[in-house]
Structure formats: structure tokens, C-alpha cells
């Protein structure tokens, strides 16, 4: 079988040479997954916050449903988004299939339940702790939620990282709705799938190393900027 050393070498060679195709693919991966996480935050945080504090019939069912949706298979999401965006589908006129936007939509659907479910847990725990204090400040529900979101910001950041990890690592959804079109919708994971199917295992694994390294870099960046923010706030 293939040598792991060869994969390291491939990865190293690609990075050192700043291979333009590699950069394009990495950039698109980042753009798609970070956009998806941002959209997921816009939807998931309010939903999570609402579920954390609101009490209404069917809430428990909704909480369980959203938690369960964390396990959505990417391929299924890809298929559903494909059927919606296909020219034959309801949203066909938008002409979004095989574009990065389609990939962002699919990944947003994958990531939103993760963000919402984890945010709900974080904010519910915080709310239990803060409830009396926030009542004493005479805050309305919205102002309370705003404070809780800010108080939970570091945990919520980790929530976003979990979502980012899911998005940047999945291939099933983006390959269906993006089509893995060279220079248009080809991202890290679809490239890895393609190179694997070409039998270029060393190259595929090398790209895998690069993907993990990038994920590591994004996480490190977030943790460092968080540490810097903490230092600034309490300097």
C-alpha cells in the first residue's frame, strides 16, 4: 500500500510551492464553510436562546428534534438541497445549483442544528444561574437574552468551532449540490474524494493533512484571539 511518508511529502510539496489550484480550493473551502457557520450562527443562536428561556407546549419535542438533527447525514441534506435547487425543483429559477451559494445553503442546514442545540444547552445553564440577577436588573426578555449571549460568548464560540469542523470536513452534501466543478465548486474534501477515486492515494492523504492543519489553524486563531480579548478586557 501507499507510504504515509509519501503523503507528507505531497502535502509539503503542495504547500511549499503555493500551488495555485490548492490555494483556490482551500480558499473556497474556507469561504463556503465560514459563511455557512456565520449563517448558522444567525439562525442557530436566536433559536437556541429562545428554546433556552421560553416555555411552551411542544418545547421538549422541539429540543429533542433539533438535537437529533445534529446527526443529519450530509448526503441526505445534499440530496434535499439538490432537489430544491434543481431546475426541476421549487427553487430552480434561482439558478443556484452547482454554485458556492448552493454549497453554503447545504452546509448551513447541516450546521444550524449543531449551533442551535449546543447554544440552547449553554444558554439554559447560564439562564438558571443568572435568572434572579437579571430579574433584579429589571431587564425584559430580549435584553436578558442579549446579556446571556454575551456572557456565554466563549462557550458559544466553541459551538461555532464545532459547526465549522462539521462543515469543513463534510463531502457528501457539497459534492452533490456543488458538483465538484473544477475552479468553480471544488473544495478540499471533494478534491480528496476525487484524488482517491483517481487512485492518487498519497496526494489525497496529503490534502487530508493540509485540511486538518487548516482546521487546526482556524481553531488556534480563535483561541488566541480569545485569549487576547480576555487580556485586553482585564488588562
Amino acid at each position: 500500500m501507499q507510504d504515509f511518508a509519501a503523503s507528507f511529502f505531497e502535502a509539503f510539496r503542495l504547500v511549499i510551492s503555493l500551488d495555485p489550484d490548492l490555494l483556490e480550493v482551500v480558499w473556497l473551502s474556507m469561504r463556503v464553510s465560514l459563511s455557512a457557520v456565520a449563517m448558522a450562527a444567525l439562525v442557530g443562536f436566536p433559536v437556541g436562546a429562545f428554546l433556552a428561556v421560553a416555555r411552551f407546549p411542544g418545547r421538549g419535542l422541539l429540543v429533542i428534534t433539533i438535537s437529533a438533527l445534529m446527526g443529519l447525514p450530509p448526503v441526505v441534506v445534499g440530496l434535499v438541497v439538490y432537489m430544491l435547487l434543481s431546475s426541476a425543483g421549487v427553487l430552480g429559477p434561482l439558478q443556484l445549483l452547482y454554485t458556492p451559494t448552493a454549497m453554503i445553503i447545504a452546509q448551513t442546514i447541516l450546521v444550524t442544528p449543531i449551533v442551535a442545540a449546543l447554544a440552547r444547552q449553554t444558554l439554559e445553564d447560564l439562564h438558571d444561574e443568572y435568572r434572579d440577577q437579571l430579574v433584579l436588573y429589571g431587564l425584559g426578555n430580549l435584553a436578558q437574552l442579549k446579556t446571556l449571549l454575551w456572557e456565554g460568548r466563549y462557550s458559544l464560540l466553541t459551538t461555532l468551532l464545532a459547526g465549522f469542523g462539521r462543515a469543513v470536513a463534510e463531502v457528501g452534501a457539497v459534492i452533490i449540490v456543488g458538483g465538484n466543478i473544477n475552479h468553480v465548486t471544488r473544495v478540499m474534501t471533494t478534491t480528496i474524494a476525487l484524488e482517491t477515486s483517481k487512485g492518487n492515494l498519497a496526494l489525497a492523504l496529503g490534502l487530508g493533512f493540509i485540511l486538518v492543519t487548516i482546521a487546526f489553524a482556524v481553531n488556534a486563531l480563535v483561541f488566541m484571539s480569545r485569549a487576547a480579548a480576555v487580556r485586553r478586557a482585564y488588562a
Binding site: 443568572y130 434572579d132 440577577q133 430579574v135 433584579l136 429589571g138 446579556t147 456572557e151 466563549y154 482585564y234
Partner: peptide, 21 residues
């Protein structure tokens, strides 16, 4: 009522401090 908590203060048995300075 909510609006009158601004003229009322309370130190809880387990004070909840915000995660700030």
C-alpha cells in the same frame, strides 16, 4: 414591576457576577 427594579437593589446569597471585569 420590572420598571421599579431600578430603585431596588439586592445582594443574593450567591451573587452572580458577570463574566467581565
Amino acid at each position: 414591576s420590572r420598571s421599579r427594579y431600578c430603585r431596588f437593589g439586592m445582594v443574593l446569597q450567591h451573587a452572580v457576577l458577570l463574566r467581565r471585569s
